[in-house]
Design a protein around this nucleic acid. Sequence first.
DNA 1: TTGCAAAATGAGTGATTACTCACTCTATAT
DNA 2: ATATAGAGTGAGTAATCACTCATTTTGCAA
Lengths: 217, 217
Amino acid sequence: MTDEQWIKDILSTDDEDVKLSEKQIKIVEAAIQVFSEKGFSGASTSEIAKKAGVAEGTVFRHFKTKKELLLSIVTPTLAKIVAPFIAKDFVNSVFKDDYASFEDFLKVLIKNRFEFMKKRAPVIKIFLQEIAFHPEIKEEYIDALTTHVKVRVFQLVERFKDKNEIKEYPTETIIRFMTTTVVGFLIARFLILPNNEWDDDKEIEDTIELLLYGLKK
Amino acid sequence: MTDEQWIKDILSTDDEDVKLSEKQIKIVEAAIQVFSEKGFSGASTSEIAKKAGVAEGTVFRHFKTKKELLLSIVTPTLAKIVAPFIAKDFVNSVFKDDYASFEDFLKVLIKNRFEFMKKRAPVIKIFLQEIAFHPEIKEEYIDALTTHVKVRVFQLVERFKDKNEIKEYPTETIIRFMTTTVVGFLIARFLILPNNEWDDDKEIEDTIELLLYGLKK
DNA sequence: TTGCAAAATGAGTGATTACTCACTCTATAT
DNA sequence: ATATAGAGTGAGTAATCACTCATTTTGCAA
């Protein structure tokens, strides 16, 4: 349990984008708030400017169009979703000391994605909402997921299969099962019922256990 | 396997709303298409009217506001989502002949919701999208789910627990697990990747099996 | 203090929005 | 044939939209 540094490093998500002026940051923050509340189409640039404490013209000085403002929020988010998995030898790192169990992996992964979601719920809400109406974003998202994340997780799952830790289901199905379970939990926790009283530690623990029992040999 | 009439009856979702004039139907159909493609805010009443082959005034003769048009689509959907579970003695019906297994129940439920989703994907997309921006709809939805669906499924799961068919996890967690798995599959299948080549029968089978292994004692 | 470029401004632009209303068309009853 | 009611129309309305641009303010080097 103590020696999980192998993934924690890879999964780090704490880098922040800099090189934005003070006003630019205020505009982006306001945009996140308004987009999150009303959706991209329902949000008006005048409201964003007002909330940012800035003239409407200033918004367009820094972002050529309203859509560019959306992209400046959504694109880095996509990058951060993918980031943990693009470490070149992701799979090997996990197995480096031939010590990693499927359980340990699940644990670290879920806890990490939990913190990720906790910190970025409004942005991820925008991301999920708008992906449906902007085919280029959706395309880019699916592309990034399949070429970076899926390929590597695929290898990983097959290694755990080889080690006889999990069942012989189609790897596709296993990945889908893991994904919907984790993502479903996070969406329920942070987007649908954020105001419920959640015993987070217990929910995470149970989710891991259920997944484990469903998949282990 | 042959004698599952007990649920199939209860789960029927094939009633259609009538008492709508020909033009009203065309307007609603057009609205479903445009709302589904562009979202509520992004859709214009003029486009809906055009697509329905109708003057814009006609839209407002039948639906006082744009939002009323949205509600005329979304409200019956909510009713149909809940419908299967509001049969007064839902739980007892399932156990009527003391013959139902958890597996049979899962099988019928998933297949039924699959057909439901298949038939109504665009409307359900609208439903899921707009629930985020219309608190009253969300409230009504959560209310209906907790007072009708959740209560009954709760009883059901506990009965299966009593019969030693499933584990002693918190019933809440079991329900969430079942829900995210099934809903996650349906969203992946019909909303995110509808154009993939899906072996539906196999996916359904595997999903049931995985859920079963995760939950059975 | 002055000079000056970059940043910020907000009134102005044409397009589009949801919605209205005075009017016409159509179907049925007599 | 005529009257009547309601369905259908589409030009018109004020409001709001994303975006522009001539002008002012600001920060800083000389």
